[in-house]
Design a protein around this nucleic acid. Structure first.
Ligand SMILES: [Mn+2]
Ligand SMILES: [Mn+2]
Ligand SMILES: [Zn+2]
Ligand SMILES: [Zn+2]
Lengths: 135, 135
DNA sequence: TTTTCACTTTAGAACTATTATAAACTAGAA
DNA sequence: TTCTAGTTTATAATAGTTCTAAAGTGAAAA
């Protein structure tokens, strides 16, 4: 994803392409593989990989703006920190609780044969499968 | 589960059956259906349903002691609070994010036909399925 | 261009969930 | 009954996140 695309991505989301947002967007979205992170881990990586520095509040603001724009999704992971995912399609995860490492599983790699029907007047929105790993 | 059983459950877990532990254990374990809760919700319910009062730290201590003893499991739910589950067997959940309500699904109610193999030298510990609901 | 201003960033305060501390209390062995 | 390790408790400390309001800035309008 090139700079012009980052600009468009931000603009079409109603987000002004500020210096900070562009740099964080490049870091998050210009990569081949899915990236799973917490605000803390993102902050550390940005400190390491870029010369600019960002207020922690800006990282929170930006990550939430991207999430609200549909460019990031939030993950359910044990512990008190919020995890984010650059893969916003329906997909599943391997999870290694010892290393807190998450690995994407494409939706098509998991086939479910049988599930119970949704309770009362509710419908199924989506299904998430976590495969917990050990050594 | 009767009082004597609560006493045994605590004793055999190496936990002294104190007034507080017995009362919390009765509240958590003397019920037909699975109970999903946060420390905050448990605290409020204990205030309402019992005459004794408990220091918040005691509720944290007790819940963690029960978890370490294998009487409670921890759940992965979006948000910053830690959820606990009185069902410690492998099972799945319906989840309604609007009400934060969790409903148990027995392991046998979900049949998975195909999953990818675990990465590198790792093995699959268990599989958790979350069925997200909408109205 | 320059001006203007709504939007954004920022440092720090505030807030919320959780854990640590250490003094007072207590279950239960002796 | 005495004794003590284990437990409870109030409170402080910590960690993750959100709020606040002042300073800065992108970009539309003049
Ligand atoms: Mn979490
Ligand atoms: Mn959580
Ligand atoms: Zn993912
Ligand atoms: Zn459950």
């Amino acid at each position: 994803m090139k700079k012009i695309d980052i600009f468009n991505k931000l603009r079409t989301s109603g987000l002004r392409p500020t210096k900070q947002r562009v740099e964080i967007a490049k870091f998050l979205f210009e990569r081949e593989k899915t990236f799973h992170f917490t605000v803390e881990s993102l902050n550390k990586l940005l400190e390491k990989k870029t010369t600019s520095k960002f207020a922690l509040a800006t990282i929170y603001n930006t990550v939430h703006a991207f999430k609200n724009a549909g460019h990031l999704s939030e993950l359910e992971v044990k512990g008190n920190k919020t995890y984010f995912d650059t893969n916003v399609s329906n997909h599943h995860h391997f999870y290694d609780s010892e290393t807190s490492e998450l690995i994407d599983i494409d939706e098509k790699e998991v086939v479910i044969q049988k599930i119970p029907k949704a309770p009362n007047g509710k419908k199924i929105k989506n299904i998430e499968v976590f495969i917990n790993l050990k050594n």
